[in-house]
Design a protein around this nucleic acid. Structure first.
Lengths: 345, 345
DNA sequence: CTGTTAGCGCGTTCAC
DNA sequence: GTGAACGCGCTAACAG
């Protein structure tokens, strides 16, 4: 089979203990011996067996990340952030996709627990956290991502969607819009409902109206259908500012409005999206959007994980809630300093 | 620490061997004993230690996938395909991101090799495959993804970019276009150069001209700039069909053409993209594009991996080259049966 | 059918 | 600064 420390020891003419020390505590070994052993390692192509190492250590140096969908740009960035933070601590992040499937999620959690990962970052599907509670009780630190833990039994990192909704709608108010619209749905998704709540708060008592349109989903075609419905109304019933609950929806709306002969963005209708996915800055009319600090979320989650690890006796988790940020672009404010477009793909 | 088979054995009043058999060979154990042991496992919250299991087995049940960028929709789908195929064989896929960074790639490969993964799927950055050759020589099966192995020493799964380029350009010829344009770059990327080669082959000898514009990159802004350059020409110098080397570039072109007052798509200018990313079907004018069978690529890669595993003595790898597929939409053919839009995000 | 036991490859004692 | 021996948790082989 593959070469082991014993083979290396034999070739270098030393004992296995010395080989181990060369790898893990080079300071404790004479320089000449170190070189001899390293040469043997290279020559034999020795790769240490992590299973054996873990078995001895009792823990691995990887952390598991279970997300709903890797293709979602938000989670992709969270993963990136987590990866960077983990690397700083000598850890590696292993991704897995739950695909919004509870069985898959369960399976992956077991898998990671069997691997005795140093910690688990989870954006859970189910509202029922009992499985995850058990894992945590058994000693694997868990941090919830993009979701708060009601009973504070876990640490969590999330974003304030009410604040994000407020920012978006408030921006429309500030640029002088009077008849605004919130578009998004389904309202059963807590994040969406929160964004609406924020929007209502921003318009309340300002004399600005807020028409609420609940959509079936948050896709481009849905946005396009909505925009067509709006254009079919008499012009006096048009909103003058639309807050779409995510960027895809906003793109759909924009596509239709851009080619309509008698509408201009943002003069007639201003448009705000949510998520700030990379396409936002690349749209024909660059889209004002609410940006979630996804990289930071990932990094913070890792940090909480490590903290939990050191300080197991901490009775309750820390709930970190980030504030989103409004990124103003042409769809609400035409005259501005040109930003350098992001080169994503 | 965590509960072990010994604890379970004690609680169930049996020996560790029996516990192991209950987990791995339930048929060999009396029904009553099985139930007793399972109850103990549940009661104690026993989770088997995979490190120990692997140490014994010599191999893990996961396969490693190293891609250039998870956020790239193409790789995201390859990953999905690999995941599904792996699941069918009781394996799990662990992703990691090389981020187009050679050091990171090297690091990840070592990590996976230390884990003694059952196999490795890699879309390598460097043209130098010597590192990967070493890994393969040491016994970990490797399959190259989206890249052919020149010397046939590995198995690989890739897509025929020449054929894809041919399809795209040939489609423009078939719908009666006479002055076509290829846009894309840099040509140092082999995939792009191949697409151009195919496009040339399709136009050659047909009387249709092919103007080649090498772009700096494949982004939306680059496409927009190109479209503006075209519009600034006298109309007689406009191309009547454009083949963009990827969808993002095509979107940029489309955005500008759509709002230009004196151009209509596809009558004046038809547009073909490449990759068929999910946004393609959602564009204002849905985009004709060349689709790579990304799911299938991932699945096939896993299959080759398993085959290599069984049949180590096979001297050379199998090179599987898939043919892409042209998906015709409104940007080249306005009147067609309406397709149901994809609901991605 | 069940119990006992020997390693898998490594890191970590301790003696030297 | 070095080497020999033990054990992490599990599985497989064999003995009962």
């Amino acid at each position: 089979m593959s070469v082991s420390v014993r083979d290396v020891a034999k070739k270098a003419g030393v004992s296995v203990g010395t080989v181990s020390n060369v790898i893990n505590n080079p300071d404790k070994v004479a320089q000449a011996t170190v070189l001899k052993v390293q040469a043997a390692i290279k020559g034999l192509g020795f790769i240490r067996n992590d299973a054996a190492r873990q078995l001895r250590a009792g823990k691995s140096r990887s952390i598991g990340l279970v997300v709903l969908a890797v293709q979602n740009p938000f989670f992709a960035e969270v993963a990136r952030g987590a990866e960077e933070a983990a690397t700083d601590h000598g850890l590696t992040v292993l991704f897995a996709n739950s695909d919004e499937n509870e069985d898959r999620e369960r399976h992956l959690l077991v898998l990671f627990e069997e691997q005795r990962v140093a910690g688990l970052l989870v954006s859970p599907i189910a509202s029922d956290l009992s499985e995850i509670t058990k894992i945590s009780d058994r000693g694997t630190p868990v941090v919830l991502v993009d979701r708060e833990s009601k009973d504070k039994s876990f640490s969590s990192v999330s974003v304030d969607n009410v604040a994000g909704g407020f920012m978006a709608a408030n921006h429309l108010v500030e640029i002088g819009k009077k008849k605004t619209m919130f578009a998004g749905g389904p309202m059963s998704i807590k994040q969406i409902a929160d964004r609406l709540k924020g929007a209502k708060r921003a318009t309340q008592g300002t004399g600005v109206t807020l028409e609420v349109v609940e959509t079936k989903n948050l896709t481009v075609p849905e946005g396009r259908a909505l925009a067509e419905e709006i254009l079919s109304r008499p012009k006096k019933l048009w909103p003058d500012g639309i807050f779409a609950a995510n960027d895809l929806l906003a793109f759909g709306i924009m596509q239709v409005l851009v080619v309509a002969p008698n509408v201009s963005i943002p003069e007639d209708i201003a448009l705000v999206g949510y998520d700030d996915i990379s396409y936002s800055s690349n749209a024909l009319i660059s889209l004002t959007s609410v940006r979630q600090p996804s990289l930071t979320i990932g990094a913070k989650a890792v940090e909480l994980l490590l903290r939990a690890d050191q300080n197991i006796n901490e009775p309750v988790g820390r709930q970190v809630v980030f504030q989103p940020e409004l990124v103003v672009r042409d769809s609400t404010l035409p005259k501005r300093i040109e930003l350098i477009p992001l080169d994503h793909y």
